[in-house]
Design a protein around this nucleic acid. Structure first.
Length: 487
DNA sequence: TCTGGGGTCCTAGGACCC
DNA sequence: TCTGGGGTCCTAGGACCC
């Protein structure tokens, strides 16, 4: 099986195996290990080696909130992300509650340190991480505060480290190196692995926090690889080994398979990524919609998405839990505060919005959303509040445990967009569904327009109704760089 | 145990237009 | 006038991710 003798340069342009002579990409997925807890350790030495729980909505001494991040030591006690702090405390009591002299108090050895989330600080640390990533890769997609994809194809390659040859030339040649952890026989190591280690080491050295890195020829495999050996992992999956690497993993390890999909797949007799890859895709489509076949392709190691920069946000929202209440003024005050905050953030980010919505969660966990679209994009905090309160009226008698406000159909119009012109007074859009620009009076607010009418619901749904015409106003959502997938 | 908060994408049904 | 199809937008809900 290892008798193949790959020869560099043997693959001629145009002779690629998949109708594409581009070299295999080298994609890294960088995933910070229990990032919030690592950040806390960065500034509090005494947390080193201790079970650390970072709680969202948590306040010292209280048992409210949920676990945002648990350190690996805390996970040993069963503490998990998204768990209510009260439940985490049952598994892992607070250190402050330990008392060696009190037989009823917890053993200090079996307690943990609880700290509230401090997002501002974590963002400062994340900025240092990003600076390293920027230095290491021109093509990046930052997925969240603690996670990013890098396309480093132009910085390194799948060639064997320390020698000539090209063991990973992109085909399914059995001579290609197998998936490897950081260790492995030197002859199996690739330049890509060395580069990934370099990135990982620089993050640790320059930002002071540990990361796990996965390296593979595509994004989804790199993502799974970074998860495969956490924390502090480095897992390399060379071209030709992707399917073999993924096959034994449970379906839940495939990005995009959550609890519901896992259960659906299980009912179909599909338990591993290998099963999923081999499953009949029409059958998957029947059970899961278009997502099904796509998950199957990912499970098979087939993913040609480009690493593209994160686009502008598509919505902004704020929500907050509250003690379950039916009290109308409490609900209205909460929504007003959330609306003000969302509107402020939108303004800070220089974006207009065209849809305003609310969320009302009734116990036990009944999520209701309501939304109303405006005739044109606005930046109008008063209108956000008015519309949100109006939508809330439907829930005047409801008991709610959580309320939220959201703006969407965002428009990051630059000031120079105002010079585009092209709006027509006639109200029509010429029939091609494309307007160049919103009616100007719809931009700044309700003045001169009829936006306030919308507080009480859409006015006349007639077409081409005067100043509010213009449905699609832009040729494309430029700058969005959407992938059409679920990253 | 009374399950954070911030997002993304997909789907389905209805309205409406051509 | 009847019938029908295609396309887009809107709203609501759901699954998933970090």
């Amino acid at each position: 099986m290892t008798g193949g003798t790959p020869v560099a340069g043997e693959t001629l342009p145009g002779a690629g195996d998949e109708g594409d002579d581009a070299p295999d990409r080298v994609v890294c997925h960088v995933d910070m290990d229990c990032f919030y807890a690592s950040c806390e350790r960065l500034r509090h030495d005494d947390l080193d080696g201790e079970p650390v729980v970072v709680g969202m909505g948590y306040e010292p001494g209280e048992s409210i909130g949920a676990v945002a991040t648990a350190s690996y030591e805390a996970r040993e006690f069963g503490v998990e992300s998204a768990m209510p702090v009260s439940e985490a405390l049952a598994l892992l009591p607070r250190r402050a509650d330990a008392d060696p002299d009190d037989p009823d108090a917890p053993d200090p050895e079996e307690t943990g340190r609880y700290v509230p989330v401090d997002l501002d600080f974590y963002e400062d640390v994340a900025a240092e991480v990003k600076a390293v990533l920027r230095d290491c890769a021109d093509t990046r997609r930052e997925v969240s505060i603690d996670e990013a994809y890098l396309d480093v194809t132009d910085r390194t390659s799948w060639a064997a480290a320390g020698g000539g040859g090209n063991p990973a030339d992109g085909d399914d040649d059995p001579a290609d190196p197998p998936p490897s952890g950081a260790a492995g026989p030197a002859e199996a190591r690739t330049l890509a692995e060395g580069y990934a280690r370099h990135v990982k080491d620089r993050i640790e050295r320059e930002a002071g926090v540990p990361a796990s890195v996965g390296v593979a020829p595509n994004m989804s495999a790199a993502k799974v690889a970074s998860d495969a050996d956490k924390p502090d992992g480095l897992v390399v999956v060379p071209p030709g080994s992707v399917a073999e690497f993924l096959a034994p993993l449970p379906t839940a390890d495939v990005h995009g398979v959550g609890p519901v999909t896992e259960e659906t797949l299980s009912e179909l007799g599909i338990d591993t990524a290998g099963d999923l890859a081999a499953a009949d895709r029409d059958r998957l489509a029947d059970a899961l919609g278009e997502r099904g076949p796509e998950l199957s392709r990912r499970a098979a190691g087939d993913d040609d998405r480009e690493v593209t920069p994160t686009g502008l946000p598509k919505s902004l929202s704020r929500e907050s839990a509250l003690p379950t209440t039916a009290d109308e003024s409490t609900k209205r005050e909460t929504v007003s505060a959330l609306a003000a905050d969302v509107a402020r953030r939108a303004r800070e980010r220089g974006c207009l919005y065209r849809t305003i919505g609310i969320k009302a969660v009734e116990p036990p966990f009944d999520v209701n959303t309501r939304a109303r679209s405006l005739p044109g994009p606005v930046d109008d905090p008063d209108l956000v509040e008015e519309v949100a309160l109006d939508l809330l009226a439907e829930f005047d008698d409801a008991r709610v445990r959580k309320l939220g406000v959201r703006v969407s159909k965002l428009d990051f119009a630059e000031t120079d967009q105002a010079t585009l012109g092209g709006f027509d007074a006639g109200g029509g859009d010429g029939g091609d569904g494309r307007d160049r620009e919103a009616a100007p009076e719809a931009r700044g607010g309700p003045d001169g327009g009829k936006l306030t009418d919308w507080v009480d619901g859409p006015p006349d749904r007639g077409d081409g109704d005067g100043p509010t015409g213009g449905r699609d106003r832009r040729d494309a959502d430029e700058g969005q760089a959407t992938l059409g997938d679920w990253d």
